[in-house]
């Protein structure tokens, strides 16, 4: 069990996240949703220990120190299109930066290759990062995060640059990895249908406060979506049992 309790993050005089608390079970995927500027990235960075903040982060009910967070929590930032001519394999290897020395064991290189291979990028291992597409770059960063063998994986918009097929590939891979390795995954995501399809738990964030937390069916209501996004939404339960969420009106209700 992983939990964060009363997490508050301030930037100057402005409070970005206020008293956020939630629990996430191991082997499960939690989706963090909310409008732009709600504080999703800030909350993830505070949990990862990248941004200073108040509150507690606990793994198996034990408060995590800074070092424990660095060793056990992997954070994958949004793709900012950073250009680098590092090869894809070198990027993956950096996921275990504390294990890297002047020479690299064959086994480690083979494992890094396998990490690339799970996303079908094995043949591109010597390709430079700035020579691949935005979607492929996103997959490489995800493979890097998984290569670090974290106990808690925080993903910031992991499907933002991906086409429909790769969105499914990534989320299926993440869910499978979480289940097989018993890790906690929290991902910030904008696509509510994907969140409902893949996440075991949904956390709604609005103006830095947690507005709702639970199963997709409980959290996604037309009233809440109207409040959160200012959009009249239609929530449809498909024959497969999944939720499909779409906007009814082309124009937001408050526009």
């Amino acid at each position: 069990m992983f939990s964060f309790d009363s997490v508050t993050v301030k930037r100057g005089a402005k409070t970005i996240v206020t008293g956020a608390s939630a629990q996430c079970r191991t082997g499960e995927l939690t989706a963090l949703v909310g409008p732009n500027g709600a504080g999703k990235s800030t909350l993830l960075q505070a949990i990862a220990g990248i941004l200073p903040g108040e509150g507690h982060v606990l793994l198996d009910d034990n408060p995590m120190t800074g070092k424990e967070r660095r060793d056990n929590v992997a954070y994958m930032p949004q793709d900012t299109g950073a250009q680098s001519s590092l090869t894809l394999l070198e990027v993956i290897l950096l996921g275990r930066i504390n294990s890297l020395g002047l020479s690299l064991p064959e086994e480690l290189v083979a494992q890094a290759e396998a990490a690339l291979d799970q996303f079908g990028l094995a043949g591109l291992q010597n390709r430079a990062l700035d020579e691949v597409s935005g979607g492929q770059r996103q997959l490489v960063y995800l493979a890097q995060a998984l290569f670090s063998a974290p106990r808690v994986l925080l993903l910031d918009e992991p499907t933002a640059a991906l086409d429909l097929r790769h969105q499914l590939v990534v989320l299926q891979a993440v869910r499978r990895y979480a289940s097989e390795h018993g890790i906690v995954v929290i991902m910030a995501i904008h696509d509510l249908s994907l969140a409902a399809q893949f996440a075991d738990q949904i956390i709604c964030l609005d103006h830095g406060r947690i507005d709702g937390c639970g199963k997709a069916e409980e959290v996604f209501t037309t009233a809440r979506l109207r409040d959160l996004y200012g959009v009249e939404a239609e929530i449809e339960k498909l024959s497969s049992g999944r939720l499909h969420i779409s906007a009814v009106n082309a124009i937001p209700t408050d526009a």
Binding site: A48, I50, T80, A82, L86, L94, I97
Partner: peptide, 13 residues
């Protein structure tokens, strides 16, 4: 790692 940008380097610890 710094060649991946400050945020990613920080995320790597």
């Amino acid at each position: 790692a710094l060649r991946l940008g400050d945020m990613r380097a920080t995320a790597l610890g």
